[in-house]
Amino acid sequence: MHRYILKRIAFLIPTILGVTFIIYAVLNITPSSPGQAILGPSASPAAIEEFNHQVGYDQPFLTKYFNYVKNMVTKADFGISYFTKQSVFNEVWPRFMVTIKLSLSGVALAALIGVPLGILAAVKQYSLLDTIPSVLSFFIAAIPSFVLGMVLLLVFAQQLKILPSYGLDTWRHYIMPILAIAIPPAAQNMRFTKSSMLEAIRQDYVRTARAKGAPERTVIWKHALRNALMPVVTQIGMSLGLLICGSVVIEKMFTLPGIGSLIIDRINFKDEPIIIAGVILISICFTVVMLLVDIIYAFIDPRIKAKYSNAKG
């Protein structure tokens, strides 16, 4: 098990190298330069060149990439923003924490809503407790998150005027963004928990437990639920990874100072150091979350744990 975890952590290194390379390559295909984007269309070609030289953009692609990686590894230095001339780390880190806070609360809320509803829907299949949440979650799957955000804004901020529509100053500012973030994965969790639970209820060991005369509550809670929840854990973990990436739209919609909106804003300025640092942070986070999911999965599923302790994998 330890070796497996170490191997997964070691895989972070090629991942980060690959990610920086991909992003560097994409950013360097275009003819436009940060000098042009930041100084504007009225700037003289000489001034643009001067700017590009000053920030180090005009170096050859591979040199730039190599230097960036070297500084990152040896000095933990992520460079200086082309646009604000501030240290990249100081700019990116607080933004990253905002995104993490939003995503974690979103995932927690989505699990709190989705999993119990899914269990109920499976236990009371074909009753109203099943059909209403199922139909709702079917519709939610077809609604883009920005439409959800707009509807929330229209209802709570503009018609009822009970919630602020942008910023993050008080706890009330968090309600709408977190709802907009949580509703789609909540619907997904519900559907997933339901099908996983239905699957578990059909298993032989559940029939055995019933045949032995165990009360229905024990059968559902002890035998079916425990087994049904394992894939659900993976699902929730994956939704956290995706949310950290996907909260871009919600951050943009509610003008929140998260990492996604920072990256979008700077893509237009070709602010390479900020974009790359932001994407690296998100990628590390995504990879670590996936690793944690796998480890948790191994811990709660004795079959996997047994496999690893025998095979020493």
Binding site: F11, T15, I23, V26, C245, G246, V248
Partner: peptide, 23 residues
């Protein structure tokens, strides 16, 4: 599969945006 793992850890919406902005 390993290249895919690396590729997948770039958030797709950001990657897509970078591609559209670049091209």
């Amino acid at each position: 599969m390993r290249s895919l793992d690396i590729f997948m850890s770039v958030p797709d919406i950001l990657f897509t945006m970078a591609v559209v902005v670049a091209l």
